[in-house]
Design a protein around this nucleic acid. Structure first.
Lengths: 115, 115
DNA sequence: CTAAAATGCAACCGTATGGTTGCATTTTCA
DNA sequence: TGAAAATGCAACCATACGGTTGCATTTTAG
């Protein structure tokens, strides 16, 4: 059972890099925090409070959309964006895998030293 | 207590973006996986199996080092790199915060609808 | 119907990024 | 001591990235 989650995490490593990259920007990181509040926000709403242009924010939103962290639906004259938590769960799985491996390595080292 | 972890995560948001960016590259992602095995690896060892140049791998390692995910010590004629799990823990905290907010938002929505 | 609101589209720009090549430096070991 | 191993340093290159500006399009509301 531990073996299964191991393979699952390893099989999906390729998918993760672009998702991590999407969060590798302060603006996008902040957007995700705002979107995590659960509502759907228009581009104008998401631009408000930022020192950036609306178009800059739009670009960031498209990046998030392309990696599947955000979904967009047109409603009237505005585009509403809302979070999709699945990629975040995948990132958590990856990090759990890495730190799990690390912890096991430390445990083996400890057992070896104490022998 | 839930309120405290909320503020802690929010206070450190600036730190996280470069760390996420560091994992936003397939090569670095793979390096971290390898380093999670717990040993210290030389540059030559980490280059082995990759299609990249040693210098390319070195650059990636410096990136990981600059965000604190990896430490380097010179031993004889080789540079040994090993993982530092703290930044990974910080990323996990951030993701926990975001998905936690999201879950709470969904719960509020559910409570509202069922009223 | 028309003006304002919200967005889309596209060109453009400076800089960061990922990668290479070439050469110098330090350590090891026979 | 001298060659091979492991790395460091630096220049260079193409392209991706973050951001802006300008203008066209669609929707709303008076």
């Amino acid at each position: 059972m531990l073996h299964r989650s191991h393979n699952r995490a390893k099989a999906r490593l390729e998918i993760h890099a672009p998702v991590f990259a999407a969060l590798g920007d302060e603006t996008r990181l902040a957007l995700v925090v705002k979107l995590a509040r659960g509502q759907a926000y228009s581009i104008a709403q998401l631009t408000e409070g930022s020192r950036l242009t609306r178009q800059a924010v739009t670009k960031h939103l498209r990046v998030l959309e392309n990696v599947g962290m955000v979904r967009c639906r047109r409603t009237g004259r505005e585009s509403l964006f809302e979070l999709d938590p699945k990629p975040i769960e995948e990132m958590k799985e990856y990090l759990e895998y890495v730190s799990g491996q690390w912890d096991q390595a430390l445990a083996r080292l400890k057992a070896f030293v104490e022998r």
